[in-house]
Design a protein around this nucleic acid. Structure first.
Lengths: 209, 209
DNA sequence: ACCGGGGTGTTACCTCGGGTAACATCGTCG
DNA sequence: CGACGATGTTACCCGAGGTAACACCCCGGT
């Protein structure tokens, strides 16, 4: 079927190792899992980054397509947002190790250094940006807002999702509600707590500059 | 003043190197900058992580204290949120390399692997969590919501701030507005765009699962 | 005056991971 | 048969984190 079945086999092996060892799996380990030695991997993928990229792109398709589809769903806006959130969380829940690989920039990769969002997530951010810019009336600042929000929302879901995945404090549905509520301005709408005098913070004076 | 002036000197050198080379600066480079050799660094800091942690804590204080102070400011809630956002963005704007180090997890650090938020940011997230839980009336789900929001907001500001820092698409004040608007439910409040038929998305059929 | 300990420094080495050069093998096509 | 391309190997290089062993200097106690 595909023109390069060996490459697929190698990716399968890499996949297995990543599932087992998480990102940061060594080239040696991957080669061993594939029953071969390093140079072959390098012939096929150039360098480690190439391998990871190939592996990433393999899984990105699914998540990206799912998110894109969720964004295009003909629902009420709130429902659509919840649908997207749920899609993403379901994705990272099903294959944690792989999605850690997808969502967290390469350790020690100098190329994309300084970007909080891994390539796969940047694509999602762009997708959100496009959806917002195309569907929501935001006035003159449309493009700026859409782009800032795209990144912001992606980062929000990344961080919150990571925490949720790590310490499963609630069901997925509840988490979706929590995030949708945040996006829906519940922070703005909620009342002040009456007991505002002892907020529990332990910093009496901001002496530091 | 401090009990260990040498240590401070070493940290100064490390600081210089990180400013120049970004995170991922090698121990050799740092040692060279300090005019000494590696083992001394290891005597003082244990391992690379210790060095980075020390370096981080040095700068964290300022940012964390500033954010904490901003969170405690006796302002209208919206103004307080804007104040916090501005404080954070001002911080990362003033020393980009250092704050990249602060905000991005250690390259190749197996300990905190899988955490989207570096320690420094986790502290900020906790600060936000505490502030929200202590100041906003969120009903029965208070703790869960506050924690999820703390992480989420931190991640949002991280990603958006990173993008803004990278490609300065607007002034800091404008960026603060954009993010505050997002947090304020403007996404929910805005009207649908009338041209909803051609949303520009290029995914005709959601064939992927 | 002597000795010991703590801080500062060095050289030389280990391990491990990414990456490469050079060589061997096998199947296929002209 | 010969050439070529894919597959595979061993053996190596390099750089980075990390450590062992040794040397020096100062200072305080007996």
């Amino acid at each position: 079927m595909s023109p390069e079945p060996r490459r697929e086999q190698l990716l399968n092996a890499a996949d297995r190792v990543v599932q087992r060892d998480g990102p940061g799996a060594s080239m040696n380990a991957i080669a061993a899992e594939a029953g071969i030695t390093k140079p072959i991997l390098y012939r096929h993928f150039g360098d480690r980054n190439g391998l990871i990229r190939a592996l990433t792109e393999r899984h990105t398709g699914g998540l990206l397509a799912a998110v894109r589809a969720a964004l295009a769903e003909p629902l009420e806006r709130r429902d659509r947002v919840e649908h997207v959130l749920d899609t993403y969380l379901a994705g990272i829940e099903s294959r944690p190790q792989v999605y850690r690989l997808l969502t967290h920039p390469e350790p020690g990769d100098p190329s994309g250094a300084g970007n909080a969002l891994a390539p796969a997530l940047r694509q999602i951010a762009e997708e959100i940006t496009r959806a917002v810019a195309g569907q929501v009336d935001l006035g003159a600042d449309r493009e700026l807002l859409a782009e800032a929000w795209g990144r912001g929302i992606t980062g929000m879901v990344l961080a919150a999702g990571d925490w949720w995945l790590e310490s499963k404090p609630c069901s997925r549905a509840r988490m979706v509600q929590a995030l949708a509520d945040l996006l829906w301005g519940r922070l703005a709408a909620a009342a002040d707590l009456p007991t505002a005098l002892s907020t529990g913070s332990a910093a009496p004076e901001p002496t530091a500059g």
